[in-house]
């Protein structure tokens, strides 16, 4: 059904309400539809009901953090190919490896570069819909 929307829907999951507002504005300004969730649990619920085309995910969050979200999100077969970009302010050496292991499609350190974020989001959404169109099961 997500194919019938005229805009790609991006789910932003971040407990930092201020950032969520501004990020939503940026992403909406780039022509996407936006929905915001305030933690991993909220994120999973909204993902199930709204079927987003991509997820922008914070790591440190109450209730269910970004890694926990990824694990549950990816364990749902219908979300196996939905792009996930992690945005985090936590810096650690094995961040890239952790993100790969969690099944994320990209990771960016906050403060992120807006142009790069939008660029990556477009790229991932396009290749995801391409895969969907080409690879019917």
């Amino acid at each position: 059904m997500e194919n019938h929307r005229n805009k790609k829907l991006i789910l932003i999951i971040d407990d930092e309400a201020d950032l969520a507002v501004v990020l939503a504005q940026l992403i909406a300004g780039a022509g996407f539809g936006v929905v915001v969730a305030s933690d991993g649990v909220d994120g999973l619920e909204k993902a199930k009901s709204l079927r987003p085309d991509a997820v922008i995910l914070d790591v440190a969050m109450p209730k269910l953090d970004g890694w926990g979200f990824c694990e549950r999100f990816r364990s749902d077969p219908s979300f196996k190919r939905t792009p996930v970009i992690i945005l985090t302010a936590w810096l650690s050496d094995d961040l890239t490896r952790k993100a790969n292991a969690a099944g994320a499609n990209g990771i960016m350190l906050k403060p992120y570069d807006e142009k790069k974020l939008i660029g990556r989001l477009r790229e991932l959404c396009e290749s995801a819909s391409h895969n969907l169109a080409g690879g019917k099961r």
Binding site: E16, D18, L26, G29, L91, L109, K110, P111
Partner: peptide, 26 residues
């Protein structure tokens, strides 16, 4: 790590705000 996170988080918001302003999103 904590200082990094605590500094980055508000900085991220401020940067996002000014970039949005600059981009004319507001």
């Amino acid at each position: 790590s904590t200082v990094s996170h605590e500094l980055r988080s508000p900085l991220t918001v401020i940067k996002a705000v000014v970039v949005n302003l600059w981009e004319g999103l507001a």
